[in-house]
Design a protein around this nucleic acid. Structure first.
Length: 346
DNA sequence: TACACGTGGTG
DNA sequence: TCACCAAGTGT
């Protein structure tokens, strides 16, 4: 089973930007950065963004010596922005406590900000060939099928970790980990597993009984609540647009947005206008912009202010937006208003 | 433990 | 259009 898996990996592995060529020891910092980026983010997205990021921050010292603002700018569009904050803190810890290098023990990795059980194990295995098996969503699914565990998806990690742990021992534990993840991404997919192409089908209890598609069981979904707001667009004669910076301790913390009323229940126009950044008049625009966050949907109506209205805040020319962190929501609103935002790395 | 936390691709 | 979901972590 182990050798069949590795043989398949050697023959079909993708040349992803963070992967060292076969037989070459990867740069542990690059592995760490890639694993943090890959948390709940697709390999295709990370593949586009990773090269520029490590070029910009090639070492822990380079990232630790940059401002959080610079890191957030480089992280734009990747989502889960707390990861960028954690990575910044992580780099500073590496410089302060580990001589600017990534430690090679599981315990030391696990103690770093932003590295949980999965990522610490992944870095230990992939960068240092430690005999540990990181269990991510792919490995959990692959393992649940191999072992025939008909449990809900959010309960399979522990039994899979126990059942597959022996695979981590022996040669090339890092490649075993990546092979299982690669198998989950390419063959043992969530909805349409290609069991007929699977290199370890002979060892799979779910495939043997034709149940692969139904394992693991899907947990039931709850309805996604809707919140509403009104965003205010004010543009000066010189082209500058009024923005504000979100506080550090909220979602999208430290990032740039249009002034808006609080996100919440549906409100009347007058209630929204009470939160406008200037007296007005304001011209409500038709339609709304919908943006889906992880756990709620935000519906944004837009109002355009009259040129010449006095307001204080963060006035930025569109060209200046490349130097500040702009989340996708703000980008979407500006696009609706006909403002194109420059963006690196997309 | 359950929930908060972003975004883009996909069928 | 829309639900699903992807190399999870912190609280």
């Amino acid at each position: 089973m182990r050798s069949a898996l590795l043989a398949w990996y050697d023959a079909t592995r993708r040349a992803l930007p963070w992967r060292a060529p076969p037989g070459v020891r990867p740069d542990p910092w690059a592995v760490l950065v890639s694993e943090v980026m890959l948390q709940q983010t697709t390999a295709a997205t990370v593949a586009r963004r990773f090269p520029l990021f490590v070029q910009r921050f090639p070492t822990p010292a380079a990232l630790a010596g940059s401002s959080l603002e610079e890191v957030l700018v480089a992280w734009q569009g990747l989502g889960y922005y707390r990861r960028a904050r954690s990575l910044h803190a992580c780099a500073q810890r590496l410089v302060a406590e580990h001589d600017g290098r990534v430690p090679d023990s599981l315990d030391a990795l696990r103690a770093l900000p932003g590295l949980g059980a999965y990522t610490a194990a992944a870095v230990a295995a992939i960068a240092f060939d430690r005999p540990v098996l990181p269990v991510d969503g792919n490995v959990a699914r692959v393992g649940a099928r191999l072992l025939g565990l008909a449990l809900p998806a959010d309960r399979v990690r522990a039994p899979v970790a126990a059942g597959l742990a022996p695979l981590a021992h022996g040669e090339r534990p890092g490649d075993v980990a990546q092979a299982l993840m690669e198998l989950g991404a390419l063959v043992c997919r969530p909805r349409a597993p290609s069991c007929s192409c699977c290199p370890v089908r002979a060892y799979c209890r779910a495939a043997g009984s034709g149940r692969a598609r139904d394992i693991p069981a899907r947990p039931s979904r709850r309805a996604v609540p809707v919140r509403s707001t009104m965003a205010f667009f004010l543009r000066r004669a010189d082209g500058a647009i009024l923005f504000r910076r979100r506080p550090d301790d909220v979602p999208l913390g430290g990032m740039i947005e249009l002034p808006s009323s609080p996100w919440g229940e549906e409100r009347s126009l007058d209630e929204h206008l009470a939160h406008a950044p200037a007296p007005g008049p304001w011209e409500p625009l038709p339609g709304e912009v919908r943006h889906r966050f992880t756990h709620f949907e935000l519906r944004v109506r837009l109002a355009r202010g009259t040129a010449g209205v006095a307001a204080s805040g963060l006035w930025l020319a569109p060209e200046a937006l490349s130097a500040v962190p702009v989340p996708t929501l703000t980008r979407k609103l500006l696009a609706r208003l006909g403002v194109v935002v420059p963006h690196r790395g997309r």
